[in-house]
Write a protein that binds this DNA or RNA. Structure first.
Lengths: 204, 204, 204, 204
DNA sequence: AATGAATGAGGTTTCATTCAT
DNA sequence: GATGAATGAAACCTCATTCAT
């Protein structure tokens, strides 16, 4: 990937995070980069495709880091903690850009973007599922869908806090804290809420 | 509020939920309503003010319903359950429009919208706090900020599920499920993550 | 003329004087009158026709007052002074509305307005011409066109001052002052600038 | 200044002079230039800013020419004549556009335009004052404010004539004629009308 | 590869005018 | 007479995109 393309992505993330995608013009982005408007279209087919590139880059980085965790020879629960820690760190870097993405809805024409996003989400879900089983054993197997939602929910809450307050927390500590909460949730499991029927919805 | 204004709000919510705010044009909204473009501006000062109206309407409905819960003579934990149930139901009605808003960035010009949103968020936080203390006693007082984040996090996860899948769950059951999870979280409390310093950030 | 029509004219003059004709909406006018937008069109065929009505009303008042001066049995130069005094007073009442009119250019469609304005201008010119001949005798006859321009020029300068500063001067004194200046101009007359050829242009 | 910007200004002056500022749409201007609507906004931030640009350009040209007169080694009265001649010529070029502007009302939002206009007006006043003192000596010092109004008044009358009739006069002759009239006015000075109190109003 | 002027569709908004009540 | 909701044309302006240089 050419340096200039990376430059554009970085500045774009910054601006989009601050002002939203629709509200950020190509002009603003190129001005922030100190390049011409035309140059933008050398590296990106369209404004839309910039979004996809950003997400792809983010996906890649995240996947890469997560892969290394899985290759490590450490207890599952430590892996879970690192997994959460990495997400906190990466999301911090890409800040509310990611948040924004979650809110931008799926329109007929961003089918490609939607696909990239969904794929990544599914991969993360799968990872998380493995980590949960590895950490807590088979007793969680009936609760996996619920647990994934719960873990993602509490994680996101703290991510939002980070983003909104623009504060730097100690991510290792936060990840530890979150794992402890997962411990509690697992300890208190009773009847799953999401049944086989609803599972299908999740996989859609 | 005139019928036509309500009609506009309803169609707008639908469209904005589907396509996002920036991407939904006033033209689309008025066409969906079967009225002229000019008519929109009889009922709303601007497109921006429509957003505020929508949020206000939603706020009012939510506040009203929550108030009735607080006036009831039932155990605190039942109130907590009803509180969550109401949110699930209302958010279902207003669909991801609300989700989108909750994550909308603070731009210089939406100051009024931001104010309305923040006020409502703070009121909900306060309610939740009271319900938590009422349900679990003073032992949670040091963990209130964390608990609020955790409860909102797990709730939002299921809300997103509802919205994305456009499925109807049994909200009473889901609320019960969520309260059970809060029980687990409270049972497993150890050291708070959010200290006095970080609390300030939340109240901002 | 119905009371309400007069009310509309008065409020309109006020607003138009402050903000200009194009910039003043019918809505603003009717709001200032405390009537509905529809009511405006009972009394005026269009916004354009309001302008004509205003000018007609102003014309009438001015003509009426000037007529009385001409019927008086006093020296011509006193009549000239009163003539100027009346103009200062009336223009003060109608304030910069009149100024504005002088600036609004003749578009194809205000032919009627243009006609009303021109007619009045010509009548005033004629009056002034008679007053000048009456006051200074035949020696000014070759200079009439020039003198008319000069008198109107110095008068307008002071009118603008009045309007812009929104100050009240003593109009009798100012009229006296202006007549003295006309005396000077007449005393110093040499060769006319406007010849027979150019006269035609004026009469257009 | 790019050629295209100058082209736009020139066509705009023409149209605005004919139809007024509010009545002339950006579309009309761009069509007259043979460019797209969007192109207008490459060269001007807004329609309003076009007005400022026009006035600035006119101001500059006028200032420049007047400066050269002041640097010449000729009698003051000749300078006065040239000063008036230049104004006639320049105003002819910019036609009634300028007239219109000189009478434009002070709206809250044209503060920048108002500032540019006022500054230029004050500079011209100052120049004229110096020329009057230079030409007629200290005896006019008490009458300066009146004289400025008088000179501007008679000048404007002839400018209007020029503009309305779209006729070309010999500006040197007209300027000579006007200076003669100023001679008369100065010769006949008696008591000033504008006192110290009113002077302040003028300087506002 | 890089520029940036130019385009033109489409956005929000205003407003004179009409008409059913 | 009076209302005011409704209309729709037209205004100003933005912006993704193209293309000659």
């Amino acid at each position: 990937m050419p340096d200039k393309k990376i430059l554009i992505i970085e500045k774009a993330v910054e601006l989009i995070a601050k002002n939203g995608f629709e509200t950020t013009s190509v002009q603003e982005i190129t001005e922030a980069c100190g390049i011409s408007k035309g140059a933008f279209y050398i590296y990106f087919k369209s404004k839309e495709s910039l979004l996809i590139s950003i997400f792809e880059l983010f996906s890649e980085r995240l996947s890469e880091r997560i892969s290394t965790v899985f290759e490590m020879n450490i207890p599952a629960k430590e892996k879970l903690q690192m997994f959460l820690c990495i997400q906190l760190e990466e999301i911090d870097k890409y800040s509310d850009f990611i948040l924004m993405q979650l809110r931008e809805n799926t329109k007929p024409d961003n089918r490609e973007l939607f696909s990239v996003m969904t794929q990544m989400d599914m991969k993360l879900n799968e990872h998380l599922q493995n980590l949960l089983v590895g950490s807590y054993g088979d007793k969680v197997s009936l609760h996996l869908k619920d647990l994934i939602l719960l873990v993602k929910g509490i994680t996101k809450s703290y991510v939002e806090l980070i983003v909104l307050c623009k504060t730097n927390f100690n991510y290792r500590d936060l990840a530890k804290f979150l794992v402890d909460r997962v411990d509690s949730l697992v300890a208190g499991l009773t009847t799953p809420f999401l049944t086989e029927d609803t599972k299908k919805l999740l996989d859609r």
